[in-house]
């Protein structure tokens, strides 16, 4: 049996990056919401993500590692072109990551400083990731319009992460904080809708390729399923958070699942937009792929180890199911 190895690795890389975006997305979203809670609520909010953030962030290392290993040519081009936003993202992730520890271990005004850096780091990393995505889909073209476009995507992704973070808090908290989180979720949903509207309006202006791919009848009619399903998922988040806010007994994971669906649908759209390119309009996955011997070596390891990773990740989420409390995780 022979595999189309670059295709397999494109799939693996996509899964790793989607896992990162969704998992660390809720961490970063909670980080950006931190200033909206009072001191005690902030401890609960951090406790709701503390046992998971480290493993969540590892999906980024895997995703970027897979680009490095499987598509080394693309890695150099992509992260060379995105050099400064990558530095900004990394510094944001560094500050956010160590702030988990410092904010509970530092004393006095240092504690406040690290709370602020937790927020700032989460925001910087989210904005940078969205900015990088905006640059990536437009093939790193120079010009002011492209920068504005990338900033729009950055702002939109921040809204998406806030939505994920808020719905995660709905699942992991109770009482007054949970009610607040339901409000944040609806607020995040508006933010996402605005972001999507602006990005959609701007896309035909900045990228002919993207436009052609999406508005090519009759393919368009099938493709329209994606935005329609996204709108349905958005309505689902809105309705379910409204019902939870009114105290109706529906599952508390309902809004989070809706937010998750929005991200998955957007990711499928993105994958469709890019394929078969790994660098837009310049380099296909087959042109960028590493030597088959290297790909095979990694594939064997991934096939053996990934099931274990999924199993113990599930085990960890099972251990920490239920509501988070302040002080529990210090």
């Amino acid at each position: 049996m022979s595999f189309d190895l670059p295709l397999v690795f494109m799939f693996l890389m996509g899964v790793a990056i989607l896992a990162y975006v969704v998992l660390d997305g809720y961490d970063l979203g909670v980080g950006m919401l931190l200033p909206a809670g009072d001191a005690e609520e902030q401890d609960v909010m951090v406790a709701a993500i503390a046992p998971f953030w480290d493993a969540n962030e590892t999906w980024l290392v895997l995703g970027v590692g897979l680009i490095l290993v499987a598509f080394p040519l693309a890695h150099g081009i992509i992260f060379g072109a995105l050099y400064l936003p990558t530095v900004a993202m990394l510094i944001g992730l560094m500050l956010r990551g160590v702030a988990f520890e410092f904010r509970v271990k530092a004393q006095g005004w240092h504690r406040e400083l690290w709370n602020w850096l937790f927020y700032f780091g989460s925001f910087l990393a989210s904005l940078a990731q969205g900015f990088m995505l905006g640059r990536y889909v437009t093939g790193f073209q120079p010009g002011f319009g492209y920068l504005v476009y990338a900033l729009l995507v950055g702002g939109g992704l921040c809204g998406g992460y806030v939505l994920l973070g808020a719905t995660w808090l709905v699942l992991r908290t109770e009482g007054a904080l949970q009610r607040k989180a339901l409000g944040w979720a609806r607020w995040g949903l508006w933010w996402v809708a605005l972001g999507v509207a602006l990005v959609s309006a701007a896309t035909p202006l900045v990228s002919g390729i993207v436009w052609e791919k999406w508005f090519d009848f009759p393919r368009t009619s099938a493709l329209m399923l994606l935005p329609i399903a996204s709108v349905a998922a958005g309505i689902w988040v809105w309705k379910s958070s409204g019902r939870l806010a009114r105290g109706e007994r529906i599952p508390e994971w309902a809004p989070f699942v809706g937010a998750l669906a929005i991200f998955v649908l957007a990711f499928i759209g993105l994958a469709y937009t890019m394929f078969p390119y790994i660098v837009m309009d310049r380099l296909t996955i087959w042109e960028a792929a590493a030597h088959p011997s290297a790909l095979k070596a990694v594939l064997i390891g991934a096939a053996v180890v990934l099931p274990f990773i999924v199993a113990y990740t599930a085990f960890s989420y099972r251990i920490f199911r239920g509501k988070a409390r302040a002080g529990m995780y210090e």
Partner: peptide, 17 residues
């Protein structure tokens, strides 16, 4: 590449989780 990938797969997820 593969050596780095094996580090991520076998070590990073294990220790982080």
């Amino acid at each position: 590449g593969p050596l780095l990938a094996y580090e991520v797969l076998t070590a990073f997820f294990l220790e982080a989780t």
